[in-house]
Amino acid sequence: MSATVLHGEVGVSDEKQAAAKSAGRRFGALVVRLGAIAAFAAIMAYFVVFAPGFTSTFNLINVVEQSAILGVLAYGMTAVIIGGGSDVTEGGIDLSIAANMGLCAAVYATLLSMGYGDFLSVLAAIAVGMAVGALNAIAVVGLGILPLLATLAVLNVAAGMELTLTQNTVVGASSPLLGLLVSGSFLGISALAWALIVFSAIMIAVIHGTAFGLRLYAVGGHPEAARAAGLSVPFYVSFTYVLSGFCAAVASILTVSRLSASTPGSGELLLSVLAAALLGTVFSRRFVPTMGGTLLSVLFIGLLANGFQLLNVSSYWVNGVQGALILLVVAITSFARGSEGSR
């Protein structure tokens, strides 16, 4: 609040109409953004009051655990959108990320069940994930295929390879690492929750705390300007796709630990991942994708599902409410953008 008052004073003291106008616009955008966040807060407040056990530490940690897989995937997607620009048809997007996770999980579980150790299996899963990411990078950067199309083709390849590898069955898996992830805990917080916390900290630090992250935004925001400034646009864009593949591999290990197996159907996560990455933009001042925003929206989606569960609302409602909220938030955001003028 104090920040907005400050903006207002600066605008008036300059006595420049344009400045006052822009401050007014900024104020409007802030109100709208706070409105969207207030809508989130209102829903949370409702759960706190009416959902029994919602605020218990056990439950909150449970939500963080459940959000770990979606969160790690959404970070990969966010990085791709940051580096590729957020244009709908031409911008960065990785449709293959969920299928890639399925493939990595299948590789990991299959190798474990064949008797290879954790080290080799994890290494193989990460290698596969990053190889799929590299394939996306070659297609998008090297061949100039639209990301939407390139990753769509790779989605089919990855999903098909997962099916071939597992014959569409559940591959059970157990190992010391999985045991640790399932039952290990530190400071009363379980290993899966720690995985999300640590991964989030690293991603936020790399993307928002380093020159590298800043350059990534430059590349996505205005590729020509970035090129003119001497940045290697192909390198940065390629990096995001390989990072996205790495995230898929990490998520695959988390999902195998949660289910004690690799299971078919991981591709269904794609839409939730997209929703989380795009919904996160509302938490940023300029409505750009940020890692922090993505984390908040992932937790929000997790809390929403959890709150419904505690209120005994049918889980069939969750998708619909999630969809309605996306529309609400985005409508508010586009309204704010409109009042800001063209970007």
Partner: peptide, 23 residues
């Protein structure tokens, strides 16, 4: 009317449509 980008608008409708069918 609400100026939502086609990608997000139809993604939202997709989620709502899935719920509607499940219900």
């Amino acid at each position: 009317r609400l100026n939502i980008s086609p990608f997000l608008a139809t993604l939202g409708v997709l989620f709502i449509g899935q719920s509607t069918q499940q219900l």
